[in-house]
Amino acid sequence: MVKEIEKTGIPVVHMCTVVPISLTVGANRIVPTIAIPHPLGNPALPEAEEKALRRGLVTKALKALQTPVDKQTVFEE
């Protein structure tokens, strides 16, 4: 799905936990996430902390979308 949407010229950031799969399918901008059943959250955290964690990940994704890349890139930090 990432590739088909990217083909239209719209940049796509793939947020997922199993990065090797994302690399294999061909996503160009990848942001690693927390866990398979809750990529953008952590039920063990208090609500406010969990939302801050999510906001951090989304901020990372937005940064990836603003970063020019010429090959598959994993945005770790």
Binding site: M1, I5, P11, V12, V13, M15, C16, S22, P39, V58
Partner: peptide, 10 residues
């Protein structure tokens, strides 16, 4: 007119 996509996977 969407400029960018965030695609999440589990």
């Amino acid at each position: 007119g969407v400029q960018a996509v965030i695609l999440t996977s589990t």
